[in-house]
């Protein structure tokens, strides 16, 4: 009986976390869709969001939920600026794909260094009562309050994002660019301006994920970025690069698998994202939803 209970816990808990992971990974997917660039600074942006939440709470006692709203415009602006100033030069270079990767990696190092300089190298965490929700019971199981909250934050954020993508003229232009930059150009879409805002949204999603993430991950430290970026990459690759629905489905599966691993094979659970990347790339590079994205 206890076995079944654990299993249920892992599955439903994984589902809740999966919703959070969807928001967490979507930012990386968005930046990729905008300019076919893998943003290696993604994890560091998430960490920045965590630091922002920490700072706002510790210094001004602002709830992390409110912090989300405060940091969002800054993040969007940052993303727009990065795209606007950096990517045009990149696109003209000899090896744009690898060089972009290296460039964003450089950005991630800069962010990490600044974070260490400002906040110190140690992990920062927030007490769970910073978000006043206690654990909630469902079907005889008790799930940590923060899992509920993060899912409840993720749902509207993702909802707004999907609405933006599928129900607004801006979103239509974005989807045009995502499927083909050249075709979109012939339809008069200024890919660069679209990309800029889209980058901004990607950065915004990452930072928002970070403000809640400081609880999910137990804290933030400057070096946590790499593992987070790989995890997000694993999710979006598994879900098909550039496909937002794919990210959501993949994130939920990822959440469930990770929770199951934590229950049944705890010492190996940190291997899940790495195994996911490697297996997906080798066995089904086009991901779950099979959008034809050439990785090989």
């Amino acid at each position: 009986m206890a076995v079944l209970v654990l299993f249920e816990f892992a599955v439903f808990g994984g589902l809740l976390l999966g919703l959070y992971y969807a928001m967490f990974a979507m930012g990386l997917n968005v930046v990729f869709g905008a300019q076919r660039i893998v943003n290696l600074a993604h994890g560091d942006l998430v960490v920045l969001g965590g630091y922002a939440a920490w700072e706002l709470y510790e210094t001004w006692h602002i709830s992390p939920i409110v912090a989300v709203v405060i940091v969002l415009p800054f993040a969007i602006a940052l993303g727009f600026l990065v795209q606007h100033f950096l990517t045009p030069r990149l696109m003209r270079s000899a090896d744009p794909e690898t060089l972009s990767l290296i460039l964003f990696f450089g950005l991630s190092q800069i962010i990490e260094a600044l974070a260490t300089i400002v906040f110190g190298p140690n992990e920062r965490s927030l007490p769970t009562n910073a978000i006043p929700v206690s654990s909630l019971h469902l079907l005889g199981e008790s799930y940590p309050g923060i899992w509920w909250v993060s899912a409840l934050v993720a749902i509207p954020v993702l909802g707004v994002f999907l609405w933006l993508l599928y129900r607004t003229p801006f979103g239509l232009r974005v989807r045009a660019v995502m499927s083909s930059v050249t075709e979109a150009a012939t339809a008069g879409v200024n890919a660069s301006r679209v990309s800029g805002l889209f980058f901004g949204i990607g950065f915004g999603l990452a930072v928002v994920a970070g403000t809640v993430g400081i609880f999910i991950f137990g804290g933030v430290s400057p070096t946590a970025g790499v593992a987070l970026t790989i995890t997000a990459f694993a999710i979006i690759v598994f879900g098909s690069l550039g496909n937002p629905w794919g990210t959501i489905v993949a994130a939920i599966i990822f959440g469930v698998v990770t929770q199951l691993a934590q229950v049944y094979l705890p010492s190996w659970s940190n291997l899940v994202p790495y195994a996911l990347v490697i297996l997906t790339m080798l066995l089904r590079p086009q991901g779950l939803l099979g959008r034809r994205q050439r990785v090989a």
């Binding site: 893998v38 090896d95 794909e97 690898t98 972009s100 990767l101 790499v226 593992a227 790989i230 990459f233 694993a234 291997l271 994202p273 790495y274 195994a275 990347v277 490697i278 790339m281 080798l282 590079p285 050439r294 990785v295 090989a296």
Partner: peptide, 17 residues
């Protein structure tokens, strides 16, 4: 089999693995 950025990142995952 993988190209450019995907090779780079998958080897990163492999190293961490």
């Amino acid at each position: 089999r993988l190209r450019g950025a995907y090779f780079a990142l998958t080897t990163l995952a492999a190293g961490e693995a």
